[in-house]
């Protein structure tokens, strides 16, 4: 069974936000209206964390793209009362929107604030295939989050099965990795020793958020800076 993981090279990443938009477009993530966005309800599955540190002129601005980390021991699935979020055998932490009752316990439990919530019914044009028809449109009151574009995995699997071959490295990539102009996001099967992700995840530059929490995130960051 493959285990999907992501490596983000922060030394290559410039923080251009292309991943955030690619993700929003791919996954039909709604746009919050201005007042809502300003009050902290803008929805990003792939968020860009920006912090400025250090005193002038030795300023350092860290820009870190943050998807869901798809932890191997996810704290969010543990607390879901209805099993609307769970970790599938391939290590994807999935969100089943129609099971979700909107208690937001998973959001409170996620140490990385990776989940977003539909505070209002998002506006879609009735019946029109707005955006990506491969991804469902969510409704008011459910939690959603980065899915590693699992719908792409499903279609890749279908093709691979039809052609009777294993999934190749780089065949299944989420929208963010695909659109990154800096090629900073690499995606693949971390259990496959031939894969780029496997190689990169063993780099001396690697770090993960929340490693001390023991949740085993599957998003690895590469950075020459000692602390990211």
């Amino acid at each position: 069974m493959p285990k999907w993981a992501m490596v983000i090279d922060l030394d290559k990443c410039t923080g251009c936000d292309a991943c955030a938009v690619a993700c929003k477009m791919e996954n039909n993530v709604p746009i919050a209206d201005p007042a809502e966005a300003q009050s902290g309800r803008a929805m990003f599955w792939m968020d860009m964390m920006t912090t400025t540190e250090g005193a002038f002129p030795n300023t350092v601005t860290k820009r870190v793209p943050k998807p869901c980390f798809h932890c191997d021991d996810p704290p969010c699935t543990l607390v879901c009362p209805v099993g609307a979020t769970y970790r599938n055998p391939e290590g994807l932490v999935a969100q089943i929107y129609h099971r979700c009752i909107g208690c937001r316990y998973c959001m409170a439990a996620c140490p990385f604030t990776a989940k977003v919530y539909n505070w209002y019914d998002p506006k879609w044009i009735d019946g029109a295939e707005v955006g990506n028809p491969d991804v469902s449109r969510r409704m008011v009151g459910v939690v959603e989050k980065c899915s590693f574009c699992s719908h792409r995995l499903m279609s890749v699997k279908e093709t691979a099965h039809r052609e009777d071959r294993p999934i190749m490295d780089g065949e299944y990539v989420p929208a963010c990795a695909e659109s990154c102009p800096a090629e900073a996001i690499v995606f693949g099967d971390i259990e496959n020793e031939e894969s780029r992700v496997y190689r990169l995840s063993r780099s001396y530059r690697v770090m993960r958020y929340g490693e001390d929490l023991g949740v085993k995130p599957k998003v690895y960051y590469l950075s020459r800076r000692t602390e990211t």
Binding site: C103, R104, Y105, N118, V140, G141, V142
Partner: peptide, 22 residues
């Protein structure tokens, strides 16, 4: 507090005893 009170019955139909909420 539920976003979808209409799906409250999921708690009984699909409740997970591992969740402190249950």
């Amino acid at each position: 507090d539920l976003g979808r009170p209409d799906r409250m019955m999921n708690l009984l139909e699909a409740g997970r005893l591992q969740s402190p909420l249950l």
